[in-house]
């Protein structure tokens, strides 16, 4: 994973709440077995059917900082939603509230999911709408977003911020504690569920 410190790019105001992961990438794009190449699925229905959709407007088309309404990323757990945003070129999403699974997935793929207050979200939207193409600088170290003259503070938890800034792989971090896992397993009761050897209604 690439380390993230600061990023500057065009801010995209997505004035919608409850943008669920089916809107971010419809299920039909989930059939691939690769981890890249999902950009064409991003917001597919809106990009296809709505000429006024923000990413269809030339000033925002090359945006890389998405500024979205509350409850962004609700619904399905599909990590493809993060892959699609990443593949399109987004480096950060700012919103006043994220769905938990989405936020976790973002952190694992180097996509910053920063939480703004509702007032700041409204202000940032206005800046980006008044001057389409305005760049937003996302400063992860100081947890600040700058747009025009304004500066907004966003929240990212300490652990996620550290991992993003270091570009660390989660599995590698966990494997430092392999002995703890082995010790834990030794104490588990024998009757805990085991899928192997396989049993079913006929063999039970």
């Amino acid at each position: 994973m690439e380390a993230f410190t600061t990023h500057t790019g065009i801010g995209v105001p997505l004035r919608r709440s409850n943008v669920d992961t089916d809107q971010i990438i419809p299920a039909v794009y989930l059939k691939r077995v690769t981890k890249t190449g999902f950009d064409d699925g991003l917001f597919n229905a809106w990009r296809t059917n709505d000429p006024d959709f923000v990413l269809n407007r030339p000033a925002y088309k090359n945006g890389s900082v998405l500024v979205a309404g509350p409850d962004f990323g609700t619904g399905s757990s599909r990590e493809h939603a993060v892959w699609a945003l990443r593949d399109y070129g987004f480096k950060a999403v700012l919103s006043s509230r994220f769905a938990d699974i989405f936020r976790g997935n973002a952190g694992k793929q180097g996509l910053v999911a920063g939480i703004l207050s509702e007032d700041d979200l409204e202000q940032l939207w206005k800046i980006l709408e008044q001057e389409p193409g305005t760049e937003v600088t996302v400063d992860l170290e100081n947890r600040q977003a700058h747009a025009g003259e304004a500066t907004f503070r966003f929240e990212v938890d300490d652990y996620t911020r550290w991992r993003l800034m270091e570009g660390l792989d989660d599995i590698g971090l966990t494997l430092r504690y392999e002995q703890d896992i082995t010790d834990f397993e030794a104490k588990r009761p024998a009757w805990m569920p085991k899928t192997l050897p396989a049993r079913n209604a006929e063999t039970a």
Partner: peptide, 20 residues
């Protein structure tokens, strides 16, 4: 609870998840 694909890989490899 539901998890993303990176976490599926994490559980396959370690049978654990780092969680708050």
């Amino acid at each position: 609870f539901g998890i993303g694909t990176s976490e599926v890989e994490h559980v396959l490899a370690t049978q654990t998840l780092p969680l708050t």
